[in-house]
Computed example of a mutant assay.
Amino acid sequence: MIRTAFVYVAAAAAEIAGCFGFWAWLRLGRSAWLLPLSMLSLAAFAWLLTLVESNAAGRAYAAYGGVYILSALVWLWRVEGIRPDRWDVLGSTLCLVGAAIILFAPRTAV
Protein backbone atom coordinates (compact mmCIF):
# COMPACT_ATOMS: atom_id res chain seq x y z
CA MET A 1 0.00 0.00 0.00
CA ILE A 2 2.84 2.43 0.85
CA ARG A 3 4.60 1.56 -2.41
CA THR A 4 1.41 2.14 -4.40
CA ALA A 5 0.90 5.53 -2.76
CA PHE A 6 4.51 6.51 -3.49
CA VAL A 7 4.22 5.43 -7.13
CA TYR A 8 0.96 7.35 -7.57
CA VAL A 9 2.42 10.53 -6.04
CA ALA A 10 5.58 10.24 -8.19
CA ALA A 11 3.47 9.59 -11.29
CA ALA A 12 1.29 12.60 -10.56
CA ALA A 13 4.33 14.84 -10.10
CA ALA A 14 5.79 13.60 -13.39
CA GLU A 15 2.51 14.03 -15.28
CA ILE A 16 1.77 17.49 -13.92
CA ALA A 17 5.33 18.71 -14.53
CA GLY A 18 5.27 17.33 -18.07
CA CYS A 19 1.90 18.85 -18.88
CA PHE A 20 2.82 22.15 -17.27
CA GLY A 21 5.89 22.35 -19.53
CA PHE A 22 3.60 22.30 -22.56
CA TRP A 23 1.25 24.79 -20.86
CA ALA A 24 4.16 27.11 -20.12
CA TRP A 25 5.35 26.93 -23.72
CA LEU A 26 1.96 27.41 -25.38
CA ARG A 27 0.12 29.62 -22.88
CA LEU A 28 2.87 31.49 -21.04
CA GLY A 29 5.28 32.02 -23.92
CA ARG A 30 8.16 30.12 -22.35
CA SER A 31 10.98 28.54 -24.36
CA ALA A 32 10.41 25.47 -26.52
CA TRP A 33 13.44 24.01 -24.74
CA LEU A 34 10.99 22.91 -22.06
CA LEU A 35 9.44 20.41 -24.44
CA PRO A 36 12.10 17.67 -24.36
CA LEU A 37 12.06 17.72 -20.55
CA SER A 38 8.27 17.71 -20.61
CA MET A 39 8.23 14.66 -22.86
CA LEU A 40 10.70 12.83 -20.62
CA SER A 41 8.56 13.67 -17.63
CA LEU A 42 5.44 12.31 -19.35
CA ALA A 43 7.31 9.13 -20.31
CA ALA A 44 8.35 8.71 -16.66
CA PHE A 45 4.70 9.15 -15.66
CA ALA A 46 3.60 6.34 -17.98
CA TRP A 47 6.39 4.05 -16.78
CA LEU A 48 5.61 4.73 -13.12
CA LEU A 49 2.00 3.64 -13.55
CA THR A 50 3.21 0.24 -14.74
CA LEU A 51 4.71 -0.29 -11.27
CA VAL A 52 1.34 -0.22 -9.49
CA GLU A 53 0.22 -3.55 -8.09
CA SER A 54 -3.05 -4.13 -9.91
CA ASN A 55 -4.47 -6.95 -11.98
CA ALA A 56 -5.95 -4.50 -14.51
CA ALA A 57 -4.46 -1.39 -16.07
CA GLY A 58 -7.80 0.41 -16.21
CA ARG A 59 -8.35 -0.08 -12.48
CA ALA A 60 -4.86 1.24 -11.71
CA TYR A 61 -5.48 4.28 -13.92
CA ALA A 62 -8.92 4.93 -12.40
CA ALA A 63 -7.55 4.84 -8.86
CA TYR A 64 -4.67 7.09 -9.91
CA GLY A 65 -7.20 9.72 -11.00
CA GLY A 66 -8.00 10.63 -7.40
CA VAL A 67 -4.34 11.07 -6.53
CA TYR A 68 -3.84 13.16 -9.67
CA ILE A 69 -6.66 15.52 -8.70
CA LEU A 70 -5.21 16.11 -5.25
CA SER A 71 -1.74 16.59 -6.72
CA ALA A 72 -3.05 19.09 -9.27
CA LEU A 73 -4.58 21.13 -6.46
CA VAL A 74 -1.29 21.04 -4.53
CA TRP A 75 0.44 22.25 -7.73
CA LEU A 76 -2.18 25.00 -8.08
CA TRP A 77 -1.39 26.18 -4.56
CA ARG A 78 2.39 25.71 -4.36
CA VAL A 79 3.50 26.45 -7.93
CA GLU A 80 0.81 28.78 -9.27
CA GLY A 81 0.15 30.52 -5.96
CA ILE A 82 -3.63 30.03 -6.00
CA ARG A 83 -5.01 28.58 -2.79
CA PRO A 84 -7.64 25.85 -3.34
CA ASP A 85 -11.03 26.73 -1.90
CA ARG A 86 -13.33 24.50 0.16
CA TRP A 87 -14.99 23.14 -2.98
CA ASP A 88 -11.62 22.06 -4.36
CA VAL A 89 -10.86 20.31 -1.08
CA LEU A 90 -14.28 18.64 -0.92
CA GLY A 91 -14.07 17.46 -4.52
CA SER A 92 -10.57 16.13 -4.06
CA THR A 93 -11.60 14.30 -0.88
CA LEU A 94 -14.50 12.63 -2.67
CA CYS A 95 -12.19 11.58 -5.50
CA LEU A 96 -9.64 10.11 -3.07
CA VAL A 97 -12.36 8.12 -1.33
CA GLY A 98 -13.48 6.82 -4.71
CA ALA A 99 -9.90 5.96 -5.66
CA ALA A 100 -9.42 4.03 -2.41
CA ILE A 101 -12.63 2.07 -3.01
CA ILE A 102 -11.51 1.18 -6.54
CA LEU A 103 -8.00 0.19 -5.48
CA PHE A 104 -8.59 -1.60 -2.20
CA ALA A 105 -12.04 -3.18 -2.54
CA PRO A 106 -12.11 -6.94 -2.05
CA ARG A 107 -12.29 -8.67 -5.42
CA THR A 108 -13.18 -12.16 -6.47
CA ALA A 109 -10.84 -13.89 -8.87
CA VAL A 110 -12.01 -13.95 -12.45
Rank of each mutant, 00 (worst) to 15 (best):
R78A: 15
L40C: 14
W75D: 02
A24V: 06
A105F: 05
A44C: 14
S54V: 10
T4F: 08
P84S: 01
R30C: 05
F6V: 15
D88N: 14
V52I: 15
R107K: 11
A17V: 13
S71H: 06
M1Y: 14
A99G: 04
L103E: 11
F45N: 09
S38K: 02
M39F: 13
W33T: 13
L49F: 12
T93K: 06
S41K: 00
L42K: 00
V110N: 11
M39K: 01
I101E: 03
R78H: 11
T4D: 14
G98C: 04
L90M: 06
N55L: 12
S71W: 09
W25I: 13
A60I: 09
A60C: 10
T93W: 02
A17E: 04
A100K: 00
R27D: 10
V89N: 05
A11Q: 02
E53A: 15
A56L: 12
Y61C: 09
V9H: 05
A109P: 03
A44T: 12
C19N: 09
L37E: 06
F22H: 07
I16T: 00
T4M: 13
L37D: 06
G29W: 04
Y64M: 05
R59E: 15
L70A: 14
A43Q: 04
R83F: 11
R27T: 10
F20E: 01
A11I: 08
R83W: 13
S31Y: 02
W25M: 12
S71Q: 06
T93Y: 01
A44I: 10
A105D: 07
S38P: 04
A72W: 09
A72Y: 08
A62R: 02
A105L: 10
N55C: 12
S41R: 00
S71P: 02
L94T: 01
V7I: 15
Y8S: 00
V7N: 02
W77S: 12
A60N: 06
I82H: 12
L40S: 09
V89Q: 01
A11G: 03
A13K: 03
A109G: 09
D88P: 06
A46L: 11
V89D: 01
V89A: 13
